[in-house]
Structure formats: structure tokens, C-alpha cells
Nucleic acid binder design. Structure first.
Length: 684
DNA sequence: GCGGATCAC
DNA sequence: TATGGTGATCCGC
């Protein structure tokens, strides 16, 4: 689930004041440790009665000054800036705007309300501290003692005794040890967890053969049928199911029952651990339940979204999503707004989705940061080998390869290339990945990852037509089709292998030693590096995107396409001062296409795409016009070159953009103070 | 199609 | 001393 919070927000037109920036380092605040990113303390369960302030202070003291922490501060500054811009846009809304959006919001809320489906009974079951519980099962001496599964650098799961000290999953172990010196660390044993997960699933299957496995430790069951057949209440089913799970595994779990999956998940958390909560299929009950519920409890609302909604709109509870509905629909895209309203109404998915196929496969590894290029190539080769092995295991071939890098300063970069050929051999992966990596040097890296997507469709045959699925979903769920992407749902995570954060580094020893340079039997670092040079310009089958092939393009000028009418737009009456680009483009547009009109329908809605923008958002409207213009020009261009080779200009533009970007990065790297966030503060 | 972000687990 | 790995999705460009 992603909430595109940044869309309608204007880019950094507003310069940040120095004082505002300083506020991010905590220097002028009374409690610098109370920053939103100290998320460890806002646990969902088991953290009641924890001295939160003490935990926050400890986490802060342990983290302060680290590279990791500095990066977190950068990210937080970015969020603060976003919040700042949202506030400015809020302030720009006139009473007329608000009255308009109130109507829009109310209408939409009514539509969503009409889609409410109270006919299904969903049960969400969630194992309690699963990894830790399994480990305690196999080593009963751990019982009653604070314990964490994971390592000194990262914790997967903590048992409830440890949680009392503020120890939490995704917390680095050395901080956890500070919070709880007697904490026992147990390494992860993935096979063990899979075994117990299978046992629980055997139980789940008895209640819903089509249950949705969210991860190893949680599942959604549609128990409508069972309840009806046995003529029992959902509460009894939940009791029975939990007892069965305990009987078969010795593990406790918690359950939530509700009319849809979103609510069921919230409910399973309420009486955790070893408890359950039933929300009846009754509209009033749902609305009462949702009214005071903090938005962060909703799946899909993470710390960033929570922070923005809280600080910009004063939204703390789900109910307030409706109260502030006019502001929300004024400032967010409709897909996002729909999701927010659904939260406010307590709506969620009620259908049983069909099997879904993975869309990508990836491998990534963290190591001690290095700028040694030969060493990085070696790491890359290892990752490529692991990925290739995984792909071959599943018989997958893909044509988009993405390299992920995390720099020593925790900045994440991705670089992708789309090939004409579907690949899955380690040689092919490494060849293309090496090119992507090479372009980033010099760089100090602490993580390398590779992902392959765009799989060969033949692999799945006709069974994976996503459109078909969407239609099915539409019919069975009774939801507006447009909303489907806006509802976060566990089915989005069907392929998550490790739940509760599986941090175990699977042993790859054999693979690392067997990993050979595809073009050189020699395994030495230098050889790896040198052989890379041989690949330069060697990828003939590669689609010429970023760096090769600018020379092979046959593009030679253009033949204007007359009367291209795909775009129908005259640009906003907001004429004047939009710079010469627009004017020039507009001239071109006028001369090359039939005129018709882009209007703001009812003063608010774009006649071309339906986007809403209030009249007071002058600059945003200009940008929007630009967008349609650019879109139109692009269409024109692609028409021109449809029969010829790809346009050189576009690739050159790409190249220039990349070059200038990497130059920037190199420069700042050299200075040792690369802070992407700063770009945001600078007016162009 | 690419890159950055957000989110879940 | 020291802050993970896998997958999905969306937006702006």
C-alpha cells in the first residue's frame, strides 16, 4: 500500500528557513529524543506499562550521531518539509473551495457507504510473538525470561517478557541489550518456523480451505460458511480455532472477527496476546468501533502517513477522516482520498481473491561498507548468483533488472535496465548489473541488492490476466473498481517469505565459493574487475536506455505528423508568466494540432483527466497544464518515431540527466556530506 | 520505463 | 562496534 502523499503538494517553492532546519536536529527542543522516527516505542501490543520516555531516551542516546541516525534525521526533515507544504496549501483554500470540497467529499462518502458489505464474516488470526514462542517451545528453559530472536545487530522478534523493557522487533540488538541487560539472544531458525507455520495452517484449512496466508504467522479466514453450517457464533469459532492451534502446536494466537479483512486485522490486535475480539456485522457497531480508533492501527497507515495526517489536518482517529474529508479531497488524489474515507467508514475488502503471482524476485545483502570497486564487484557477483539460483528454482525469467545500493550514509539508490531478452542466468544478471554498478563509482556501499521483474508471461500462460482478476474482484467484492488498489490488503504480501522480520542470513557458503566469473575461471578480485571491462559495450541485446547505443540510433531529424489530435487542450486561462517554455510549446501545439479546450469543469475539475484543483491553486494548475502538454508532445513524438528507431533525443536527455545527477553525487560524496534532502530546500 | 518513497511483515 | 530482507505499489517524471 502506498499513499502518494506528495502528489498535489507543490514542490519546494518555499524556501526553508534556517531555524526550521535546525529544529530537526533537536537542538532547540526540550526533548530531542521524542522524534517520530523513534518508532520502536509505539508498539502495537505488549508495550503497555513501558516507560516510554526512558526507552525513547535510551534509543536516542544509543543512536545519536551514527550514520544511520543522521540518515533518519534527513528523512525526518524531508517529512517535515512535506508537512510544511501541505499546511501552506491548506491555508490557500478559500471558503468557496472548502464549500465545494465538502460537497465532493460528502458525495463520495455516500457512494462508498453504499458499497458497504456486511454479509461476510472474516477472522484474522495472528500468532503471538511467533519466532520467540517457537524457540521457547524447543527450549523451555527460556520460558519466563526476556528473550529475543535475532542478533546483536538486529532483532526479529522479542517475547513478551522482553517487550516489558521496550525491546521490539526491528530494533538493533545492542540497543535492546542496553534496555534489558539480561536479554537472551537466540539465532533465527527459519526451518523451525516454517514447520510450525504448516501445523497452524492445517488447522486454518479446516475452517476455510481458501484461507489467505498473510505470512508465516498470520492468516485471514472467511468463516461465513462455517458459522452458517454449524449454526454457531463467530465468537465460538474463534475460541475453538485458537484452542485447536494451541493443541496442535503448543503456541498461542490471537484472533479478530469483523465484517471485512481490514477490521479483522485491527481486531486481532486488541486482546493480544492469547485473546480475541469480535466486531459484529452491524453498521452502528462498526462506526462506533472506528470512531475513536487511532489511524495508526489501520494497515496501510504507517508512521509517515500518520505524521502528515496528524500534523497537517489534526487527524488522530478514523472518524476524523470523514470530518476532515473536504481538506483531504482537496489535497490528495482520489485513490488516496477513497482509502481515507473507507477507513473512516470502516470499510475493507470482503472478497476471496484468486491466487496471485509474484511480480518480482530479489536478493540483497548488507556488509561492512566499502568503496573498493573490486570487492563490490565480488559482492555483486555473489548476489547475482543467489538471485539466479532462486529464479531457476522457480523457473522464472525476467527482463527488467534493478540494482539497489545503500551507501555508507544509508542513502538508498536504485538503478534499473530493461532488456529485450528474458534472463535468469547468473552470467546475464551479473553482466548487466555490473554495468549499472559501474556507473555509480566512486561510491561507498554497505548493501547490494538485485531484483528482476517483468517476467516472461508464457510462464503463467493465460491464467494470470490481471484484468480478468480485477473484474472478478469487482463483481465479488461489490466495491468500486477504482478503489481496489487503495485498500491495503494482505494479499499484497502473499509472497512475503519472512514474517516478523526474518533476519537470518541463510547460509550461502557453498555458493560463495563456487561463484565464478562467467568469463574468467579465475576467482581473484582483480580478475573480476578486469573481466568486467570486457563486458563494456558488449550487451548487444540490451535495450538502449541509459548509456549504450546512443550512436546506433538512426533517428535523423523529424517529420512532423500533421493533425495529431490525441491531445485536446488549450492551456489554462491562467496565461501569462509561466515562462517561455510553455509559450513555445503552446505555439507548437497550436500549429500542430486541432484546437479544443481544456477546461476546469465547475471551476475545479480538469476536463481531460478529472483531477481536481481549486482555482486558488494557480501554480498547481499551470503545472497541471504543463503535464498535459508534455503528455501530448510525448504522444506526438512517439507517433513520429513509431516506424523508426527510438528517438535519439530522448535517450540523450536521459543520459544528460543521469550524468548531471551522478556528477552531483560524486561531488558531494567527495565532500563527504551528501544530503539529498538539501536539494529540496534549494529553489531552482 | 525509471527512481524514490512508503508500507507490511 | 553495531540498524535487515522480500515484495508490492504509486507518483512524478
Amino acid at each position: 500500500m502506498e499513499l502518494h502523499l506528495q502528489m498535489k503538494e507543490k514542490k519546494a517553492e518555499i524556501e526553508m528557513e534556517g531555524s526550521e532546519r535546525e529544529s530537526n536536529d533537536g537542538g532547540d527542543r526540550p526533548h530531542p529524543w521524542q522524534s517520530y522516527h523513534t518508532v520502536y516505542t509505539i508498539a502495537k501490543a505488549g508495550m503497555e506499562g513501558v516507560d516510554k520516555e526512558k526507552v525513547q531516551r535510551t534509543v536516542y542516546e544509543m543512536s545519536k550521531g551514527s550514520k544511520y541516525f543522521q540518515n533518519e534525521e534527513r528523512k525526518e526533515a524531508f517529512i517535515n518539509h512535506k508537512i510544511h507544504n501541505f499546511r501552506l496549501n491548506c491555508a490557500k483554500l478559500t471558503p468557496q473551495d472548502l464549500s465545494h470540497y465538502r460537497k465532493v467529499a460528502d458525495r463520495r462518502i455516500l457512494e462508498l457507504e453504499a458499497s458497504r458489505d456486511l454479509s461476510r464474516i472474516w477472522l484474522h488470526v495472528d500468532m503471538d510473538a511467533f519466532y520467540a514462542a517457537v524457540e521457547t517451545l524447543s527450549n523451555p528453559t527460556l520460558k519466563g525470561k526476556p528473550m529475543a530472536v535475532g542478533t546483536i545487530s538486529m532483532i526479529s522478534t522479542a517475547n513478551y517478557e522482553a517487550r516489558k523493557f521496550g525491546v521490539r522487533s526491528a530494533m538493533p540488538g545492542f540497543i535492546a541489550r542496553k534496555l534489558c541487560p539480561q536479554l537472551i539472544f537466540v539465532p533465527t531458525d527459519f526451518n523451525k518456523y516454517t514447520h510450525y507455520s504448516d501445523l497452524t495452517r492445517k488447522v486454518f484449512r479446516r475452517y476455510d480451505p481458501n484461507f489467505i496466508a498473510g505470512s508465516l504467522d498470520e492468516a485471514y479466514l472467511d468463516i461465513t460458511q462455517v458459522c452458517k453450517e454449524r449454526n454457531v457464533k463467530s465468537e465460538q469459532i474463534a475460541q475453538e480455532l485458537r484452542a485447536s492451534v494451541y493443541e496442535e502446536t503448543g503456541l498461542t494466537c490471537s484472533a479478530g472477527v469483523a465484517p471485512n479483512r481490514l477490521l479483522a486485522k485491527v481486531c486481532s490486535d486488541i486482546n493480544k496476546p492469547n485473546g480475541q475480539y469480535i466486531l459484529p456485522n452491524d453498521r452502528v457497531a462498526v462506526m462506533t468501533f472506528i470512531s475513536s480508533l487511532p489511524i495508526r492501527k489501520i494497515g496501510g497507515i504507517g508512521k509517515v502517513t500518520e505524521s502528515i495526517l496528524k500534523e497537517v489536518f489534526g487527524i488522530n482517529t478514523c472518524e476524523q477522516m470523514l470530518e476532515k474529508g473536504s481538506y483531504l479531497c482537496a489535497l490528495f488524489p482520489q485513490s488516496t482520498t477513497d482509502f481515507f474515507y473507507s477507513v473512516g467508514l470502516g470499510l475493507g475488502k470482503t472478497d476471496s481473491p484468486q491466487e496471485r503471482f509474484r511480480k518480482s524476485i530479489s536478493t540483497e545483502r548488507t556488509f561492512s561498507a566499502t568503496e573498493d570497486e573490486a570487492l563490490l564487484y565480488k559482492r555483486l557477483a555473489e548476489v547475482a548468483q543467489m538471485l539466479s539460483t532462486d529464479m531457476q528454482k522457480e523457473g522464472l525469467c525476467g527482463r527488467t533488472l534493478t540494482l539497489k545500493l545503500k551507501t555508507a550514509s544509508f542513502e538508498v539508490r536504485t538503478r534499473a535496465v530493461t532488456l529485450q531478452k528474458y534472463i535468469n542466468s547468473s552470467e546475464d544478471i551479473l553482466k548487466h548489473a555490473s554495468k549499472l554498478l559501474k556507473a555509480e563509482f566512486p561510491i561507498s556501499v554497505r548493501l547490494i541488492g538485485l531484483r528482476v521483474s517483468q517476467f516472461n508471461e508464457d510462464k503463467y500462460g493465460a491464467t494470470s490476466d490481471p484484468k480478468q482478476k480485477t473484474i472478478t474482484h469487482f463483481i465479488t467484492s461489490g466495491e468500486d473498481n477504482r478503489n481496489s488498489s487503495s485498500f491495503p490488503d494482505v494479499t499484497d504480501h502473499d509472497f512475503v517469505a519472512g514474517m516478523e522480520t526474518d533476519l537470518s542470513i541463510v547460509s550461502r557458503q557453498t555458493c560463495q565459493h563456487e561463484c565464478r566469473d562467467p568469463f574468467d575461471g579465475n576467482h581473484s578480485l582483480d580478475a573480476d574487475y578486469q573481466s568486467y571491462a570486457a563486458w563494456e559495450n558488449g550487451g548487444a541485446e540490451e535495450v538502449p536506455t541509459s548509456e549504450n547505443d546512443a550512436t546506433s540510433s538512426n533517428y535523423s531529424g523529424c517529420t512532423d505528423v500533421p493533425g495529431s489530435t490525441s491531445f485536446q487542450g488549450q492551456f489554462a486561462d491562467t496565461n501569462v508568466n509561466n515562462g517561455c517554455n510553455l509559450l513555445k510549446d503552446q505555439e507548437r501545439l497550436e500549429s500542430s494540432c486541432q484546437e479544443s479546450t481544456m477546461l476546469w469543469l465547475n471551476d475545479y475539475k480538469c476536463s481531460l483527466c478529472g483531477t481536481e484543483l481549486p482555482p486558488s491553486f494557480v501554480e498547481e494548475r499551470l503545472e497541471h497544464s504543463d503535464f498535459h502538454l508534455a503528455e501530448k508532445l510525448q504522444k506526438e513524438e512517439s507517433k513520429i518515431h513509431q516506424t523508426s528507431l527510438p528517438s535519439q533525443s530522448r535517450y540523450q536527455k536521459d543520459r544528460i540527466a543521469r550524468q548531471s545527477k551522478s556528477k552531483k553525487q560524486r561531488l558531494s560524496q567527495k565532500e563527504g556530506s551528501y544530503t539529498p534532502i538539501d536539494y529540496f530546500f534549494v529553489r531552482e
